[in-house]
């Protein structure tokens, strides 16, 4: 039997999405069906090895794109592979690392390295025999889709078991492997009608009713419900880690639409007082995919 050739690559992600494959027994049971040809995270795979490979069947890319190195490798992978799957919210929408778009490159580097002097610089190794170069740090975080063509999108932080089971069958056709109904559909806190008249933070007293009725920001109505409302079941409001539905362009804008249509009175002032950085809350997972996707700054 011809084995399916797989490649895994993690750009600026946390490797959690890849590890969720290894949480599945089914992945190991069906392991005779495929072979992993290139995966720098858990096999000894170098860039030269990738250049030697002539064809990959399915490539999983995790994490968003920031460094020039990510961009180069992702482009090579696209050339060699038949199907490219963006795995996880970071690859699909930009994810939490995408929040760095609120800051400039200088701000990030000075926050991490202190002064400019400590920023790592290319050095010469072994008396000038090898030149060590560092990849370029780009101005903004980008989604995988902005760099290469992506065939399938699997959002989730990390993707749920039922999504992964669909993937390891390797004959999926649909472009978006995600639930079509929202978190509210699987949420145990059922309500008839949502009306908001005050705003609360998530750590304030919770009386067990729907979070939105109490005035706590919950993005359940806008988020695909693959997670089976795991967070709400442990009394934490949904933060939208599955990103937006496939037909939604801008998640944060939809949150503003949602809030304004369920509010009973003008809560704007209270909202900005309780959530001083509201944009960072509503765009927590989807900033690079937003219409205005970064802080405007002088170049």
């Amino acid at each position: 039997m011809k084995k399916i050739k797989l490649a895994f690559y993690s750009a600026s992600g946390c490797s959690g999405c890849m590890l969720s494959f290894f949480d599945l027994e089914e992945f190991f049971i069906s392991s005779e069906r495929f072979s992993i040809v290139w995966a720098p995270m858990f096999t000894n795979s170098k860039l030269e090895d990738l250049e030697k490979i002539d064809k990959i069947d399915v490539t999983f890319i995790e994490g968003s794109i920031r460094l020039s190195e990510h961009e180069e490798i992702v482009k090579i992978l696209r050339e060699k592979s038949e199907k490219v799957v963006a795995l996880g919210t970071c690859a699909v929408f930009g994810g939490v690392p995408g929040l760095s778009n609120f800051y400039s490159t200088e701000e990030i580097l000075s926050e991490v390295f202190g002064s400019d002097k400590e920023v790592p610089k290319p050095r010469l190794l072994l008396d000038g025999k090898y030149e060590l170069t560092l990849p370029e740090f780009r101005d903004e975080m980008r989604r995988v889709e902005e760099v290469i063509d992506v065939d399938h999108f699997v959002p989730g932080c990390p993707p749920s078991e039922d999504q992964l089971l669909k993937i390891i069958d390797f004959n999926f056709e649909e472009k978006w492997i995600v639930e079509k109904s929202s978190v509210c559909n699987v949420c145990p806190r059922k309500v008839e009608e949502i009306k908001v008249s005050s705003v609360k933070r998530a750590f304030e007293r919770d009386d067990g009713r729907c979070f939105l009725i109490q005035g706590i920001l919950c993005f359940g109505p806008l988020t695909p419900g693959n997670c089976e409302a795991t967070c709400v079941k442990v009394n934490v409001p949904c933060r939208g880690c599955y990103g937006a539905f496939p037909n939604v362009r801008d998640f944060g804008a939809k949150v503003v639409d949602l809030l304004s249509s369920i509010a009973e009175k003008n809560i704007a002032e209270e909202l900005s007082r309780k959530y001083p950085n509201l944009a960072r809350v509503i765009y927590a997972y989807t900033l690079p995919s937003a219409i205005i996707n970064k802080r405007v700054r002088k170049r």
């Binding site: 609120f102 503003v256 809030l259 704007a268 002032e269 944009a279 960072r280 205005i292």
Partner: peptide, 19 residues
């Protein structure tokens, strides 16, 4: 009412984007 609330929430968010 919806439109008014929407613009006022949005105007609180815009400064974070530098607008």
């Amino acid at each position: 009412f919806v439109a008014e609330l929407k613009t006022s929430i949005l105007s609180n968010i815009l400064p974070e984007f530098g607008l």
